[in-house]
Write a protein that binds this DNA or RNA. Structure first.
Length: 415
RNA sequence: GUGGAUGUAGCUCAGCUGGUAGAGCUCCAGAUUGUGGUUCUGGCUGUCGCGGGUUCGAGCCCCGUCAUCCACCCCA
């Protein structure tokens, strides 16, 4: 048997209706902030990600789907979408458009990791980027928007974590200090963290290994290294959120795995997700455009929501708010003449906006059974008796009551 | 890449200390001819993940392998 490859999956009804709901809600809400959709290719030149995401990141070093194309160029399935959006921004000179560029996207991303709860090799992100301003108010609005979005789709009990990872200068000093201090206590660290202490000291900060806890608590906070400007920027973001009544927790140890983040970073976690409890992550990336070769500065901030994880959380915590598909009319015909008449009725009903299921096969009893299981609100039963009177037998499936109506009266039931 | 758990009908699972497979749901047909949601009757579906081994005999034991899930790593 041919099966979906490891880490990929089929999204089937009724789950797909939740996906549609989540995606449509994003379009609606982001639109109110004047975001517009951008669609970039699913694959790009490998260099885009190695330069954008970071040569040394796990994503680039071991998780990308990369292959050599027939002409010898190296191509990669996108592991994330921010780099592509910035690439498109540069390529099409979007900085010349009036105002800030506010772009949202949704679609599949690919990372070759070991699958587990909430983690897939093909997964879906809904994200947004606001490019062209360094104002902390922009950070605040982006974060507020995504919080409002989660509220709008009915997610509850999520927690917003924010931090500032500093600009290049202050972060450089911080990393150097961490590296130095960790070198002194290396023996006390777990094996994983001994390695990270050298390769990526920031990662030591959010280690889950209890063995490392004593050392971690002695480490300085990034906030001690932030320069005045960065500190002020972060304070302004927090002030925005306070004004907006968005609750958050400052987590000085929150670091992110993509190299391009500067200053504000944030994450939203939810308890229903198991170990992979992050529903979305995001942050500011003031230097990304330049590192991709842009001659114009294009500071920006964005986030991406793990749609798989959002859907999962909604299904575990807010099942009642997820709309279920309805069938307004199920049409049952006895005989060919009745079927033709019903098909015409179906056309009229659908023109008026009703959801109509024509039952093509089976006896009356079986058809009613099926209509019932499909959740039909009403069934129309049509046989020779009704035909001869030019009427339809309309049955209310909840009450069981039925009455014979002319076509106009049937159509009037819509809405 | 590392570790743990699990793999029995379409789905959820049972199967005692080894004696060649079961339940519920689903699906199909029926309970006098045009009436569902309850009930009843009957029926279909399995190389017990795959390959080896031990044994008179293995779904149950051993080895290998694959897959899935969970966790680590990392992230969405």
């Amino acid at each position: 048997m041919i099966r979906a490859v490891k880490g990929t999956r089929d999204l089937l009804p009724p789950d797909t209706s939740v996906w549609n709901y989540v995606e449509q809600s994003a379009r609606d809400l982001f639109g109110r902030y004047r975001y517009q959709e951008i669609r970039t290719p699913i694959f790009e030149q490998t260099e885009l990600f190695s330069r954008g995401v970071g040569e040394e990141t796990d994503i680039v070093t071991k998780e990308m789907y990369t292959w050599e194309d027939r002409d010898g160029s190296s191509l990669t399935l996108r592991p994330e979408n921010t780099a592509s959006v910035i690439r498109a921004f540069i390529e099409h000179g979007l900085h010349q458009q009036p105002g800030l560029q506010k772009l949202y996207y949704m679609g599949p991303m690919f990372r070759r990791e070991r699958p587990q709860k909430g983690r897939f090799r093909q997964f879906y992100q809904i994200g947004a980027e606001m490019i062209g301003s360094e104002s902390p108010l922009v950070d605040g609005e982006v974060i507020e928007m995504v919080v409002r979005y989660l509220e709008a789709v009915g997610l509850r009990d999520f927690k917003l974590l924010i931090n500032s990872v500093g600009d290049a200068e202050s972060r450089g000093r911080y990393v150097a200090a961490l590296r130095e201090q960790l070198a002194g206590v290396k023996e006390q660290l777990s094996a994983d963290n001994q390695r990270r202490a050298e390769t990526n000291p920031l990662r030591v900060l959010d280690s889950k290994d209890p063995q490392d806890e004593p050392v971690i608590t002695t480490l300085p906070s990034i906030h001690e290294f932030l320069n005045a400007e960065t500190k002020e920027h972060f304070a302004a973001v927090c002030a925005y959120l306070d004004d907006a009544d968005v609750s958050y927790e400052v987590r000085p140890r929150l670091v992110r795995g993509l190299d391009y983040y500067t200053r504000t970073t944030f994450e939203i976690v939810h308890g229903a997700l198991g170990a992979q409890n992050s529903v979305l992550g995001g942050g500011r990336y003031d230097g990304l455009a330049e590192s991709l070769g842009s001659r114009v500065r294009a500071p920006g901030i964005g986030f991406s929501i793990g749609a798989d994880r959002l859907v999962m959380s909604l299904q575990e915590t807010a099942a009642g708010t997820i709309p279920v598909p309805v069938v307004d009319f199920a049409l049952i015909s006895m005989g060919d003449a009745a079927m033709r008449r019903n098909l015409a009725l179906a056309r009229s009903l659908r023109r008026k906006g009703a959801v109509v299921e024509v039952l093509f096969d089976g006896k009356l009893k079986r058809a009613l059974d099926l209509a019932n299981r499909l959740g039909a609100r009403r069934t129309v039963i049509l046989g020779d008796d009704e035909l001869s009177r030019g009427a339809f037998m309309v049955k209310d499936m909840a009450s069981g009551e039925q009455s014979e109506l002319g076509e106009a009266d049937v159509l009037n039931l819509v809405g």
